[in-house]
Amino acid sequence: MNYLNKHNPIGDVDMIRILERLDRGMTTEEVLLELSEENRDEARELLETIRLLDEVREVIVPPREHLQQILVRLNAPFEKSIDEEARDSRLEKNTHTPKYRIFPLFPLRHYFFPVSVGAIAVLLVVAGRSFIVSPIGTDAVLYELGTENLSEIFPDDQVIQITDKSDVLSVPVTEQHFDMLTEDTTGSVVSATAPAEDAGRAATENIQAPVPLNISRSGTLYANPFEATIVPLTKNETQDAYGVFPEDDFSIYLKTLTDMPIDNY
């Protein structure tokens, strides 16, 4: 009985039936006889294709030497898998990696970046200070007074720089000077505490103390408050024009003040 008695080309179902008959052990001739005449040519080609595939199997013969090689390799035990070898390889690389250390507990590679950045920042700050332009204002003036030579900053003035409270001055002051210095008496009373070494004790005893005194601190003269001992002097012809002191910077400054018109002071 022809199960494919039709003219249509062989479809999936027909092909599966052919294959089932072949699996049951039917010969190609027996299968072809069950087909219609119209389908026999196509079926014959399909069966020929199957035969060629079988021929391909016959001609593909695995090489014997290949088998022998693998068996030899298998007999040599594989001690490590690929993963283990890869891990070992990584470990080996790590052991060969040089470790730069400053000292054993301080591996440089871990701290190199923050340390180097910090060092660069410090260098920039230090270098930058040289180029900082001083700000303009009172603070700047005080800053300059505290750090610079005043006579250089104020070359036109006779400046005495007093930086230490212990440098007690014995100022040769006449009544005129004293009046001038204390003209603006808004400050505290300055008491005579200790005479200068060069001052005579007799002269010290002549102090008309306590004397309200304001030594101006608002200008260029003094950066910090201090106490000064004012020693009024009586003129002594045998020493100098003002008594006990040789003419020093401060005396010159005071003379300048004396000679200066009050409106300019």
Partner: peptide, 15 residues
């Protein structure tokens, strides 16, 4: 089976 059937017919055509 379906894959085998289609594969064979495809193969025949290509050959």
């Amino acid at each position: 089976r379906a894959i085998a059937s289609r594969g064979l017919r495809e193969l025949r055509k290509k050959i």
